[in-house]
Design a protein around this nucleic acid. Structure first.
Lengths: 345, 345
DNA sequence: GACTCACCCCAAAGCGCTTTGGACGCGGCC
DNA sequence: GGCCGCGTCCAAAGCGCTTTGGGGTGAGTC
């Protein structure tokens, strides 16, 4: 069923039918009702391509996922973020366009999305320090919102971010309060902005007490389970093992726990662990007393926020760049405890 | 830069420019070269909406994700599948359209995708027994490929699936060979087709030896970590605990392992575990000797296969419905061992 | 020299929608 | 009575591309 057919059926012009359906005031209530009824009855849906050609709006938002690494981006955290954003899009009548592109083709991909006219806006994932995408998109002139921040971008842009520094500062403070002095940081890739900030929080907490973290205890890599396991395993076997771990992802923390248990130690007694918890739906850390002491912040919710912000921006282009910083909660679980007097052999 | 401008610039008609760029034979090689060079130099990209309006092809594939459950679909397995499919799409010039829709709006969503003309085809995720979507899509007339199968669909359709029954049959056989007789099945939601098949394999292996699995040892739910933990914990505390677990997802298996270790037991010695392993990138089970004995089949690869099949089908509409069944490998890890003579207290 | 036939190229007609710029009729006002 | 304004509706012009149906031009053929 196309507009023309519908209009002929109603003995009205295409103009009137289109206006009736799109809520323009130039059509009488009676006609509007009649048109709406007929449209519903025949299941008329405007062809989205024709409409966006005519209006110049795509009614779609793009998410460009860098294929740099096989692990980092197409990951479970991303899935939850997408789920949150997707809720908002469908509620507001937008589609979501996903493109996976190799890293070297990224710039090209963004430009192409613009000139192809495939999307009205973009969400930028996983910003790095010195991320050129922000400059690029400002230049291209496509509205966008960054999930995270790029430390050194000097131009204004919109972002939604968790207060990584503060969260890791608090987590580190907790461990220090419990008496731990040898704390390992099992961080994400430090080319990523969020990981930098987490590390900053970690160091800040030490510095505030006149302490300096041991560089040998700080690692950085893609946040897989295996990375957590291997890192913890190696550190715990070393001469001066850490007594606590601060971990950047619950998946990595699961690996850390595995290493601890393999060595016959008990998490929460022999070794303390705090992890960041993105509140992933299938990896809930929500028992009566959660398994992991954690800094928690729902990435799904971040997806919702970023999406709403972007749509608002698209529908209201004049507005100032807006940003939203939210705090993670620090919740106590079973994985932390005071430093043992006699360290486990 | 639009076609018209480019053509004026070249002193050619739009027709010729369009044909030159799209590889039609009616234009001389010399002109084609000239046009291509100019297009590249000015970064000309045809507007995708105009093009698809003109050609009737959307150059996009839809993935409709049911929002039924907060856990089941928007999950890490899905993320890897998407990654695989996305590789194929971008290589072949297609976009990927993701819509998250509430369960009750699914039918509506599919019809709308068709009439809106937003996509050329669809991938169907997580088919259930008696899934109405297959009939619906055949009726609507939108090409599609199912990831998995719907047991009782009597119409032909395309699918890509792992041999779930066989994989779980083999896994169960291994446990039985090791002497285990009380094997727990920690399955996914049995409204899902794949879970049904896995259960069938499990039962088949028992039946082949004249055994009958204890229904008390069979559970079914969304494959979260918590579900694995709670189920294993409860079963191991019961009167006649299982000596082995067969688990449907590595995430759930991680929960099972947690429960085992909480009870002071050792996986692979006191309790055996086999899990299905979707070969997720951030949850690799690939040590020298893998942690889990597992039936492994890359879901990312399944995504690639499903996407290629769909695109082939779209580009060659006449073809017979095709299907692809692939086997999982059974790989031995540290989590299985022979039944202990004296069961752990 | 007329004719055919490739070979290149073009003008114009869509694709299905929105939107501009009226047209028409009717009541109210001076 | 003429004029204006308002409420309704319509014809037609795009949006940027592909594609149909020719139209020239020059080489080859008789």
């Amino acid at each position: 069923m196309k507009l023309k057919e519908l209009s002929e059926l109603l003995h009205l012009s295409q103009t009137t039918v289109s206006r009736a359906l799109n809520g323009y005031p130039e059509v009488s209530e009676a006609t509007r009702k009649r048109v709406q009824a007929a449209a519903a009855a025949h299941g008329y849906r405007p062809n989205i391509r024709a409409r966006s050609l005519a209006t110049g709006r795509a009614l779609a938002i793009g998410h460009v996922i860098p294929l740099t690494s096989k692990h980092e981006m197409v990951n479970p955290i991303f899935a939850d973020f997408i789920a949150g954003a997707g809720e908002v899009y469908s509620a507001r009548g937008y589609d979501m366009l996903l493109s996976l592109v190799a890293d070297e083709e990224q710039e090209h991909a963004y430009r192409e999305l613009k000139t192809k006219g495939a999307v009205d806006g973009l969400i930028i994932h996983a910003p790095r320090t010195g991320d050129r995408r922000i400059h690029l998109l400002n230049e291209i002139g496509l509205p966008f919102v960054v999930h995270g921040r790029a430390t050194d971008a000097d131009e204004p842009y919109c972002w939604v971010d968790m207060n990584n520094t503060h969260a890791f500062r608090r987590a580190t403070d907790l461990l220090l309060d419990l008496g731990h002095r040898r704390i390992a940081l099992v961080n994400g890739l430090e080319s990523m902005d969020f990981a930098q900030r987490r590390r900053a929080g970690f160091e800040e907490a030490h510095a505030a007490r006149g302490l300096a973290p041991d560089p040998a205890l700080m690692s950085s890599d893609e946040m897989t389970e295996g990375y957590g396991h291997d890192t913890a395993r190696a550190l715990l076997a070393a001469d001066a093992p850490p007594t606590a771990f601060l971990v950047s992802s619950i998946i990595t923390a699961i690996g850390v726990r595995r290493a601890i248990e393999e060595l016959g130690l008990r998490m929460g007694r022999d070794v303390s662990v705090i992890t960041h918890d993105d509140d992933l739906s299938y990896l809930q850390n929500r028992a009566d007393v959660p398994v992991f002491t954690a800094t928690r912040s729902s990435v799904r919710d971040a997806g919702r926020r970023a999406a709403s912000m972007l749509l608002d921006r698209i529908e209201n282009p004049g507005a100032e760049p807006c940003q939203e910083l939210f705090e993670a909660e620090l919740l106590l679980g079973q994985s932390t405890g005071p430093l043992l007097e006699s360290p486990p052999k």
